[in-house]
Amino acid sequence: MNPLSYHRALSTADALSRAGDGAARLLGGGTNLVDLMRKGVERPSALVDVTALPGTIEATAEGGLLIGAAARNSAVAAHPLVRSQYPMLARAILAGASAQIRNMATVGGNLMQRTRCLYFQDAAASRCNKRIPGSGCEAEGGFNRYHAIIGTSPSCIATHPSDMCVALAALDARIHVAGAAGMRTIPLVDFHLLPGDRPDIETLLAPGDIILAVEIPPSPVARNSAYRKVRDRASYAFALVSVAAGLSVREGSVEDVRIAFGGIAPKPWRAFRAEAALRGGPATREAFEAAVIEELAGATPPPEAAFKVELARRTLVAVLTELSGSDR
């Protein structure tokens, strides 16, 4: 770790005035950043602690939620409104990491956490286009079981590791961002970028931008929602595949549906095509199957991750079937 300065920002203006410095990084809980600094992947010389900025969780006027970026993951998951109105979000957060880490991790940091690709993390010895654009990608032809099957590019096949973001993608969350040019709002589904030929650019944030809050619109469909995470051990492991879904069925047909996948793409993968295929149609296992097959039709998995196409299909069908109540 390089020698560092540390500043705890007490206001957004204070944070903004320091965040623009190219060598500075915002510090949330530090659960990702500090780890990456130890691994030599991140090398800031200044940290701006943003955990003293707002972290409250409030109901919005239109019946949604506004969650301050500094809110701890555990606080969000435990919040009564999240548990009752957006169960998939509570469950997704609780599926991530460990209780200790969730107590530390902030919502802002979770959105910005970086991939767990083994070669990305091995700054000392491995080539990685995400760390050094143009240097090559060692996951290609190496260990890529945890890698993406859709949305990848020849330059990078890494996944976005977050669980929380998968639920947020399904919930049409919007990110409130403050930057040099003022405030703006970005839909979460647009916030993370596909790698293209610049896998080092991961989000729409410009240098110096700060995430202030996440807003979740009211979502009746989310009340009947679930998050299922499939992983290599029963707990405390990143997703191989995860599914966030909400479903409302009326008289046997799909009234509304929200679906997002984790573990299979460079960003939280909102399954728009599957949703479109399902909406208004029958809420049957066959329809769920057909929708997910359509969604993943373009999958180009690396060799070790080929199983994820099937795993994603089965997991989604099982989740939707359960939400539709047809197996009860």
């Binding site: 540390y6 705890r8 780890d35 460990s98 107590n103």
Partner: peptide
């Protein structure tokens, strides 16, 4: 020292956290 084992667990204001990924200054 990677946030992966929990051996460093301490309580901050009564809540369990990992002291390896907490910079001391953050606990100010």
């Amino acid at each position: 020292n990677q946030g992966a084992c929990g051996a460093c667990t301490v309580l901050i204001d009564g809540e369990r956290v990992l002291s390896c990924l907490t910079l001391a200054v953050q606990a100010d």
